[in-house]
């Protein structure tokens, strides 16, 4: 058995994106990955945590042999994704999207049967294997095995995606945002199942932009920002790096988030924000003892902009604060 279940070495990838134009197209190069190296041990759940566009999915696609890096390499169970993609495909189970990836008119069982045949599972074992993964993912309990994919809830679709990934009995699981948009019970079920699979000795690589999930699910986390892994380690260890800070979180309306962020940064504080419709959720990081100053600053900026503060709290550090401390904050989507 290879030393690491997954290992990436200095992965780099650039994309050319089309900006517009019909006959003479305008293009822009985007640096998706700028030298990403990390490894995942057997029996470990490793989380790639970062905002949308940070490069998480690109990494998963390279490891899954769906995309070739410009330079660097990824290894799964010792096999190179670039030079030996066929071997890599034999040992991985992949889940890329919760909402797509199945035949809409076919039932859960029919979909699994199709992919089982495609994976070359022997007919004598296919039926039993399908029953096993339906049971394991809770689809049977939900009575969803005879439901068409188009009639399934998001939670059922996610479970079906995981069921397919498990059909081959893979030693390495690559899961891109497996709980995105799921109801809490479904997300909890999937997290529990991933833990069981890791306890069995399988390696699990998950991407997420949900910090809470990364904290409770992953053994180790790689925080990725702008195509680089900027911090790595067990969640508790990462949080210790910011143990001397507190965070002031607030929800505001009637304010331009980018403007507020610039003013907070101008005052020497780091801020992370999310825009959710009319509301802007902010998280401002401060040294312990500076809470009152930050609250004053926030109140003043809100008043000057004619904004309303709907809620404000002082919180102990979380993984979000690790991200803020390392990247300087910014927008989180």
């Amino acid at each position: 058995m290879a030393t690491y279940a997954i290992e990436t070495r200095e992965l780099r990838k650039r994309y050319r994106t089309r900006l517009g134009g019909f006959l003479r197209g305008q293009y822009k190069w985007v640096e998706a990955l700028r030298g990403v190296s990390f490894h995942v041990d057997w029996g470990e759940i490793y989380g790639l945590l970062g905002p949308n566009g940070a490069g998480k999915t690109t990494i998963v696609k390279i490891i899954a042999t769906l995309l070739e890096p410009d330079s660097g390499d990824a290894f799964v169970a010792g096999y190179s994704s670039v030079r030996d993609p066929g071997r890599v495909r034999q040992v991985i189970g992949v889940m890329l999207s919760v909402e797509r990836g199945f035949f809409w008119k076919l039932t859960a069982r029919e979909n699994l049967k199709y992919f089982g045949m495609l994976y070359g599972l022997p007919s004598s074992k296919l039926g039993d294997k399908i029953e096993e993964v339906l049971e394991l993912t809770g689809l049977k309990e939900l009575g969803a095995e005879e439901k068409r994919f188009e009639d399934m809830s998001l939670g059922m679709k996610a479970r079906l995606g995981l069921a397919r990934a498990l059909l081959k009995d893979p030693q390495v699981l690559l899961l891109d945002e497996p709980t995105l948009g799921l109801d809490p019970p479904s997300a909890r079920h999937i997290r529990g199942l991933l833990r069981e699979l890791a306890n069995d000795g399988r390696a699990v690589l998950v991407t997420t932009h949900n910090m809470f999930e990364a904290e409770i699910l992953c053994d180790r986390i790689g925080i990725i920002s702008d195509g680089r892994i900027v911090a790595e380690g067990p969640p508790q260890e990462l949080k210790r790096r910011v143990s001397d800070t507190v965070s002031i979180t607030a929800t505001l309306t009637g304010i331009v988030a980018e403007g507020l962020s610039a003013k907070v940064s101008g005052s020497g504080y780091k801020m992370l924000y999310r825009v959710e419709g009319e509301r802007v959720r902010v998280r401002i990081q401060a040294k312990r003892g500076e809470e009152v100053e930050v609250l004053d600053l926030l109140t003043r900026l809100a008043r000057d902009s004619g904004a309303r503060i709907l809620e404000v709290r002082v919180e102990e550090p979380t993984l979000e604060d690790v991200f803020i401390a390392i990247t300087g904050g910014g927008r989180w989507e």
């Binding site: 993609p85 999207s97 797509r100 990836g101 199945f102 035949f103």
Partner: peptide
């Protein structure tokens, strides 16, 4: 279009 292409691609050596 269905999103099944990556799963088919990773199911086969060729």
């Amino acid at each position: 279009w269905l999103g099944t292409l990556p799963y088919i691609y990773t199911s086969t050596p060729s």
